[in-house]
Write a protein that binds this DNA or RNA. Structure first.
Lengths: 232, 232
DNA sequence: AATTGCATCGTACAGCGTACGAGTCAATCG
DNA sequence: CGATTGACTCGTACGCTGTACGATGCAATT
């Protein structure tokens, strides 16, 4: 019944002004807060993956009881939402403001996006299923503004944004999930070679052995941008 | 200990030759088989989504005990694998063999791919996390062969395939998950309008209200293909 | 008649998310 | 000063999950 907490702000003061504690910093070991919960959830997700995030385990890491989390957070889903958005923050680099080279700006932002997600491989597969948090919207807004300034017509703008979104999401999810060990990849190609009568072309191009993901992302992005706004 | 069953073939005969039953068709109501399990899993997934697939519920639909499934299937993960690949079969249309218009062929196959997944919205988000089944490989092979025949150089081939893959995966996952009700979408745009000082451009282009997904897919695909193999 | 091997299922267990209500403690109020 | 309030914590419990294990049935073979 109680209204509890709601938004994601709750900036300052977990405990009013200052606790009458001895040490210079209060026992953050025992004080729960939304920020600490989200930060710890990210740690746990990094360490154990999506399936490794259990409320009990999260509480253990925080040194609290499992049910204490529910004062700060509605349910486990919200933990995912918050962890995801917290990982997608974008700090626009100084040189990028009012840059002349719109293409470079976009590539930079999208490569940073991808890199952020690959640093937290659980985030990519979560992204499409979650609400659009503020950090995501900031990136979309930046994308939109830059493309618009680059001459993409209003009629094509949404298509262009979604195309780039699709490309980044697809590339990153795939990359994050297809990261076999070398053994796995060799085995896959082995299996493929055995069936090379069925799949001769992808066998010949060694599609499944190619692991230059960064290069493929960069090149593919160039192709897509060529299509969206042909260099003249 | 027992070896049980392994592969995904197990084509004919669930029960030797022919059962000495009276009716023309045996009591398929009570006979379990891999095919029936997979088909029913797809039904259940369609009806209840990824989280709705529980082994007990699946067994209920099959009129069997929950543990009986484990004779035919290693574990729940395998059920997902099989359900996914079963949904991605591609029947190459007759006119497409030795077609002159490679671009049309690719668009057809990819639109069919997307449509197949949207018919089973759970499949899109599953795809990147699962092993590449035969039906997926068939599509990749076709893609590869067509692009190669269209003049894409070997050096660019893998990049082109992954770019198209990324685009299809990203578009479909997004489409499948962002399918709000009209109310949801209105609410999202409402929230955005309230914050229009922060996101003026995407607010203006009504990015979140645009629901011409099919058109956006088609147009974006065209842009990408333009980039990959410029029409001369 | 005895044996084998495929197939089914009842029971049981550990682990999950979280509802519920009791507990603690600092700030506030009369 | 004692009483009250409200923010916060947590122990217990419940229903549900995937699946390990072993008992059971039954057709084909010996």
């Amino acid at each position: 019944m109680a209204a509890k907490r709601s938004g994601a702000e709750s900036k300052g003061s977990g405990r009013k002004g200052a606790p009458p504690q001895s040490g210079q910093e209060q026992r953050s070991e025992t004080t729960l807060s939304l920020e600490r919960i989200v930060a710890t959830a990210v740690e746990l997700l990094d360490a154990e993956g999506v399936d490794g995030l259990k409320m009990r385990r999260l509480a253990d890491r925080l040194g609290s009881g499992a049910m204490s989390l529910y004062w700060h957070v509605d349910n486990k889903e919200k933990v995912f939402d918050l962890a995801l958005d917290s990982v997608l923050e974008y700090r626009v680099p100084p040189g990028l403001v009012a840059s002349e080279d719109w293409r470079r700006d976009i590539v930079h932002m999208l490569e940073d996006w991808r890199a952020s997600m690959l640093r937290h491989p659980w985030s990519a597969s979560l992204l499409p299923r979650r609400a659009l948090g503020p950090n995501i919207l900031i990136r979309l807004e930046l994308l939109s503004k830059t493309l618009s300034g680059a001459g993409v017509t209003d009629a094509d703008l949404n298509v262009a944004i979604w195309s780039l979104w699709n490309f980044v999401i697809g590339a990153t999810i795939t990359r994050a999930n297809f990261e076999f060990s070398d053994d796995d990849r060799a085995a896959a190609q082995q299996r493929l070679t055995g069936l090379s009568e069925h799949y001769p072309t992808i066998e010949r191009s060694r599609l499944l052995l190619d692991n230059d993901w960064d290069g493929a992302f960069r090149k593919g992005l160039d192709f897509l941008l060529d299509g969206l706004a042909p260099r003249r």
